[in-house]
Each structure stands twice: as C-alpha cells, then as structure tokens.
Design a protein around this nucleic acid. Structure first.
Lengths: 199, 199
DNA sequence: GTCTATATCCAGATAGAC
DNA sequence: GTCTATCTGGATATAGAC
C-alpha cells in the first residue's frame, strides 16, 4: 500500500500548507495574539481540532513561519550573490526581483511584514527568537558584500556599505508595509529612484 | 478652591499621560491584543481599576494614541512646509529633523511604528480607522508639494514627486523599524545617501 | 482618586466519538 | 483524519470599599 502512504503524506503536507498560508496572513493583519486558532482553522477550511492535529500550538505555527520567512528571504539574496554577473547588475537584479515579487502579491511581501513585526516584538516564542538571532543579519551582510564588490570595481557609489545595505532593505520593507496598508490603491513607484541611491 | 481644581486637573492629565506613554510602547512591542490592561496599569504604576477610571477601554487608549500620532507627524511636516526657506532646504531639514528625533529615542519613533502597524492591521477600532483614513495622506501630500516646488525651481531631481514622497516616508519608517529591532546595536546611517535620492 | 475583589466572557488546548 | 464538545485559565471590564 505504498500508494496510500504517498497520498496520505501529500494530504498531510497540503493541510499544513493551508494552515501556514492562512496563519501568515492573519498574523500580519491581526497580530499573533489577536489571531485565534479558530480563525486560522476556519479560514483554512477545517475544524479547530484538526488544526491542533497538525500543530501543537499557535506558537509552533508562528515559529515555523519565521523559519520559512528567513529561509526564503536569505535564500533569494544568497542565490543572487552567487550569480556570475557584475555586482552592479546584481544590485539592479535584487531591486527588480524584490519589487516584482512584492508587486505580484506573492508570499514574499507577507513574510517581509512578519519578520518586520517579529523584529520589533518582545512577545515571540523562544525558538522563533533563536531563529531570528541567527538569520537576521544574513541578508544585510550579503547585500553589504555585493556593494563592497561593486565599490571595488568602481561601479557603485562610495558611501558606507553597511549603511547602503540598511537603506536597501529598509526600502524593500517600507514598500511591503505601504503595499499592505494601501491594498488596491498601491502603485509601485519608479524603481530608478531607489537605484540612484547606489549608482 | 480654584487652587485644588487646577491641581486635580494636573494630576488627572499626568495620569492620562502615564497611561498613554506606557500603552504606546507596549502596543508596539506586544501588539494591541497582546497587551493586557493589567500590564499597562502596572507599568504605569497604578492599579487596574484606576486605569479604567481614566479610560473606558483599551480601544479608547488605542484610538487616542492614533489621534496623537497623526497630530504629531502631520504637524511636524506641515509646520516645516510653511517655513520661509527654499524647498531644497526644506527637504534637507525634514530628513535631518526626522532622523534626529528618531535617534534621540523620542516618542516620534514609537508613533511611527504604531501607525505603520495600524496601517496594515484589520483589527483596529472604527474610530481609529476613521482618523487614519482622514490623516494618512496628509504627510505624503505635504512632502509631495515640497518636492514639486523644488522641481519647479530646479533644485530637486525630476522623478515622479508622488514616488519620491513615498520613498521618503518609507525610508523614515524603515529606519524606525530597524532602530526598534536592533535596540542598542542600532547606528544611524549616513543621511546623505537618503538625500541623494532627491538631489 | 485609588484600591481589591469578582462577574463574565472568550480563547487555547484536549478528549473522545466517528 | 476529522469532527464536536468541553475543560481550564486568563483577560476585560465593573462594583464597591476606603
């Protein structure tokens, strides 16, 4: 019955996905404390009991989301760093890709908001805190390295590279916040303004 | 007994201030739903009952804070707009002042975070929502006007003024988030990078 | 004005039937 | 795997003493 095993596993994974997908959005717009497990279960189309069958607690869902958030965000920039194009091109690509993902309404924007809130929050589970402490600087550092490389070959402005990386991520994050706040009314601004900070 | 009347009023005002001051910080770091009235009362140095003597509900405190937040932020930029200096100088002043306030650890940064969260949140009191809908664009519009003025006299870059205003506030907000997240480790970046977006 | 005590409600988590 | 019913703790808001 290996056929059933596989199918069951697939169903399990889908259920987990549904819960995570729903919880991510609810946590962002209602806060973690303001989101009830009932809401998550209902919007994910299952009963409260079933949600608890897949996750031991609300905190576990949250921690898992934080883990995924950093996995995605750090993964994206680290992959980009490894590409064999000029540093200047990498920065351009980074801006384009992040804003594209944001604009497409992908999970990316939601994860941005989740980590932004998590960073400010004092009330997050210990395990999530540990993930954050470990992962928080990865994307900043990667962007800093790209910028330094670009400064060495003279294609990037010679401001402090740490500061520039900070502004880069600050802008991405700020746009995510703005998009979420304005909803349909949001219009992605001209990215060359942003690029001008660097080149 | 007009002397006592005054004194009483002053005490009343101070109590309210204590509550608002405490609640602002707690709402930001724990979320509104995650903040208990007990916490607010305790940290403000009074009993739960007394806190309820000054505010009818947690929602009322929140709404009042949203009101104050926009009052302060919009007030600052509108005042700056009225000054009799060149638009270019106004932008420079805006950047300097906002970052100064942020750096000084004033309420300003906390209010930034509160409104940012409120903008994303779906769970805010109706009255607070009304204030937001009315006030949200004031600062954006004011900055847009200043930029347009600067473009007319040729001292500001000719990107779309709405976009530039968005990036300005986005950056301020992003820095507030970053400062809150990093705490003591936060170091204010070189503001000329930011200025370069505009000039 | 200020406190303690408490009524009331609601949410997290569990038990157990199907 | 999935549901309904329920236990239990804790938070909002109020009552009433000082």
């Amino acid at each position: 019955m290996s056929r059933n095993r596989e199918l069951n596993q697939k169903m399990r994974d889908e259920r987990r996905e549904q819960i995570l997908f729903t919880a991510l959005r609810l946590f962002v717009v209602k806060g973690v404390a303001g989101t009830r497990m009932r809401d998550i279960a209902a919007e994910a189309g299952m009963s409260l009991g079933l949600a608890y069958h897949y996750f031991l607690s609300k905190e576990e869902i949250y921690t898992e989301l934080i883990r995924i958030a950093y996995e995605k965000m750090n993964g994206a920039i680290l992959e980009l760093e490894k590409m064999t194009v000029s540093p200047r091109k990498k920065i351009r690509l980074a801006i384009d890709r992040m804003l594209e993902d944001l604009n497409a309404g992908e999970d990316f924007g939601w994860y941005c908001l989740l980590t932004a809130q998590a960073g400010v929050s004092l009330e997050i589970p210990e395990e999530a805190r540990a993930v954050m402490d470990k992962e928080r600087n990865v994307a900043f550092d990667a962007m800093e390295r790209i910028i330094l490389e670009g400064q060495r070959d003279g294609s990037v402005k010679h401001y402090d590279a740490k500061d520039m990386s900070l502004f880069f991520w600050t802008a991405i994050n700020g746009l995510a916040v703005n998009k979420a706040a304005r909803g349909e009314a949001f219009r992605m601004p001209d990215v060359s303004i942003l690029a001008r900070m660097f080149m």
